[in-house]
Design a protein around this nucleic acid. Structure first.
Length: 295
DNA sequence: AAGCGGCTCAACCGCGTGGAT
DNA sequence: GATCCACGCGGTTGAGCCGCT
């Protein structure tokens, strides 16, 4: 038996919304709140699919939406989060108040993707394009990546990449990107691939974009040598920007951002299809930590 | 002015997920 | 456990806009 359609296909308007339709939807949601999207169109007198109404509201009509161009800061957050989460646009949008998943997805595909490619970065893997081909076959090792974009080549002059010993199977998580104009070479000491480094050119230097991305889940430090993460250090750490707006005391605790991640996902759940509330064998030892974090 | 191609982004579509029964 | 249903997500599409020739 096939899946039943989400709505009656006949007598349903499609395409661009009219001002009148918008107003009907706004008025209805003001009076009745969000939810029950399936019955909303009829109740609101709209000849639209419930899905369409939901999308229109979420992506366009919601009063808390931020309009206008993305800021540099938002760019950075998007890139960092995409490196961590992949195409989980809704999760990324959750970290950018006033932005929708659709908006971020579009922005990624039309702007950021190109920006990364122009820097020699594969936008999907967040690895240098030249190293992408070997990424899938690499075995999990230590974690350390440094990219130096200070020379004129579109390709990073110095590249170190690696994989993380994740509880899941060989999931590559991009590690540290440093697009800044000055890179401390001593930070890149666990290279797995290294190309000769031409002297940096003063001209044609890529604009300094600080895209530091550091990842280190609490439990990873026990199995990888260079994954240690200083939770107490700079406010630019990954977990800091993941931290929700500090509305509560819990949010201000050092591990709170990790809690966000832990609450949002058990990576193994994605891999193994576990149900909500279930943790795989790998993650169970850390449930106590997560609880500590969450509290 | 017209034609063309590239870009943007709102909207659609199909599928996965989770709750209810 | 199986099935149904509503919702949410991510990929894709296509209309409209804009710049270039």
């Amino acid at each position: 038996m096939g899946r039943s359609p989400c709505c009656e296909k006949t007598h349903i308007n499609k395409g661009a919304w009219t001002k009148e339709e918008d107003q009907r939807l706004i008025n209805y949601i003001r009076n009745h709140g969000e939810g029950c999207w399936r019955s909303l169109p009829q109740a609101a007198g709209l000849h639209r699919c419930g899905k369409s109404c939901r999308l229109r509201w979420i992506n366009y009509l919601r009063p808390d939406l931020k309009r206008g161009n993305f800021t540099e800061e938002e760019d950075k957050v998007i890139i960092k989060l995409h490196g961590l989460l992949g195409n989980k646009w809704s999760l990324i949008a959750g970290r950018l108040p006033g932005r929708t998943d659709n908006e971020i997805k579009n922005y990624w595909n039309t702007h950021i993707k190109r920006k990364l490619i122009s820097h020699g970065i594969n936008p999907q893997s967040h690895r240098p394009i030249s190293a992408t081909s070997t990424a899938t076959t690499a075995t999990p090792t230590t974690i350390k990546t440094c990219l130096d974009f200070t020379n004129s080549s579109p390709q990073p002059s110095k590249v170190t990449t690696s994989l993380i010993n994740s509880p899941t199977k060989n999931i590559f998580i991009p590690t540290t990107y440093n697009y800044s104009s000055s890179v401390d070479d001593t930070k890149c000491n666990s290279s797995t691939t290294e190309e000769s480094q031409p002297p940096p050119s003063e001209k044609n230097v890529a604009p300094p974009i600080d895209l530091e991305l550091s990842i280190g889940l609490p439990f990873q430090s026990k199995c990888t040598k260079s994954t240690s993460f200083d939770y107490s250090s700079s406010s630019k750490s990954l977990f800091d920007f993941l931290r929700p707006a500090p509305a509560t005391d819990a949010a201000a605790k050092p591990f709170s951002a990790a809690a966000v991640v832990a609450q949002a996902m058990c990576p193994c759940k994605w891999q193994l299809g576990l149900q909500k509330g279930q943790l795989c064998n790998n993650c169970q030892p850390f449930v106590g930590l997560y609880r500590y974090i969450a509290n």
